[in-house]
């Protein structure tokens, strides 16, 4: 059942680096999220103050002027119609507060939105699909899915620039501890940047309703040091050797799997589903739904609709021998 995957979700660990599962926007670990955190606290401070003052006056008014037993019901209080001075005061003061907030807002908007990338910045294209993320590294000629590997930036000198688009409906990229969200919109390119300060796995979600499995369109940003990242990228560039022969590969290539998935160096060239060239090196399956274990992989291939109802991959109706073979083949694609 579905629980199989979901319960397993948080057992994922990339060795050596912490996973940030609780995505508290007040514990940012990248510059855009930190700028947003600062203005958030400022805004909360201002609004809390307003709440205390106005709420306090309302409470006082209710307590002080509520009718008590024994009050003369026929005696009406003094009829006061209004006061222009008071109206003016409580118009002008909020206007002043609003202008302060507008000024601060403008500053943060420009600092986040119009920051120019450092020359060393990594460029990544993120393309939204119903219900997974395609991730392309143009400089490295790599395509992967759902897990975005980036170098982390302890000194603020590294940054990753993301170009966001969608092949189908509107999605939204939200990894709360790295940055606020930006939508992925078909026929439109959006941009955002992140610079994770610590090595770690940062969890996020699709934040724009995009259809049946919107809930299970999870996102993971894996921030590593430069050399680990380079090693990962080089590993991802390798294609499958033509000489590798297995029953799993034969089954895979004899079925319609190849119409939707790419496995570099083989005849699997379909672009509809996630690129599987290095599936074995990923930590999760089903767009972050469950850990990438053999058991989960077999369950997924056997019937994706059991795990992620409504997803666009059909059950391939494999025999258990075929299933074993295909799972072994995919696991071997490191």
């Amino acid at each position: 059942m579905t629980d199989l995957g979901l319960l397993a979700f948080f057992q994922v660990q990339v060795p050596g680096i912490p996973e940030h599962r609780v995505t508290d926007i007040f514990k940012p670990l990248a510059s855009p999220a930190a700028a947003e955190r600062d203005i958030a606290w400022f805004t909360i401070a201002v609004t809390t103050l307003i709440f205390i003052v106005v709420g306090g006056i309302i409470v006082y008014t209710i307590m002080r002027f509520r009718r008590r037993p024994g009050d003369d019901l026929r005696q009406e209080p003094p009829q006061v119609y209004g006061s222009n001075q008071i109206e003016l005061a409580w118009t002008v003061i909020p206007i002043l507060i609003a202008f302060v907030l507008i000024g601060v807002t403008a500053r943060v908007v420009w600092s986040v939105e119009n920051a120019s990338p450092p020359p060393s910045a990594l460029h990544v294209k993120v393309i939204g699909h119903q219900w997974w993320w395609e991730v392309v590294y143009p400089d490295y000629r790599i395509t992967t899915a759902n897990e975005i590997h980036v170098p982390y930036s302890p000194d603020g000198k590294e940054a990753t620039y993301l170009e966001l688009s969608s092949v189908d409906v509107v999605h939204s990229f939200w990894v709360p501890q790295l940055s606020g969200k930006v939508d992925l919109i078909p026929n439109r390119l959006n941009y955002m940047w992140i610079d994770p300060k610590q090595a770690g796995v940062y969890v996020g979600n699709c934040a724009e309703y995009c259809g049946t499995q919107h809930a299970n369109m999870l996102l993971r940003v894996v921030a590593e040091d430069r050399s680990t990242f380079r090693a990962w990228a080089q590993g991802q560039q390798k294609a499958v050797e033509p000489s590798v022969v297995s029953t799993g590969r034969t089954t895979f290539e004899s079925l319609s799997c190849v119409n939707c998935h790419v496995i570099q160096g083989t005849k699997a060239i379909g672009k509809f589903g996630p690129d599987l060239s290095h599936l074995g090196s990923r930590s999760t399956l089903g767009a972050g739904m469950m850990t990438n274990t053999r058991e989960h992989l077999k369950a997924w291939i056997n019937d994706p609709q059991e795990i992620k109802p409504g997803c666009l991959m059909p059950s391939m109706k494999l025999t258990s021998t075929e299933l074993d073979g295909v799972a072994s083949y995919l696991e071997s694609l490191k």
């Binding site: 958030a40 307003i50 807002t105 939200w174």
Partner: peptide, 23 residues
């Protein structure tokens, strides 16, 4: 309604809204 108005101001601060939007 006072609370609603004040959380509305938080949402109007667009960088804060980048976090809060659709949450």
């Amino acid at each position: 309604f006072l609370v609603a108005g004040l959380t509305g101001i938080m949402l109007a601060v667009s960088p804060f809204d980048w976090q809060l939007h659709d949450s």
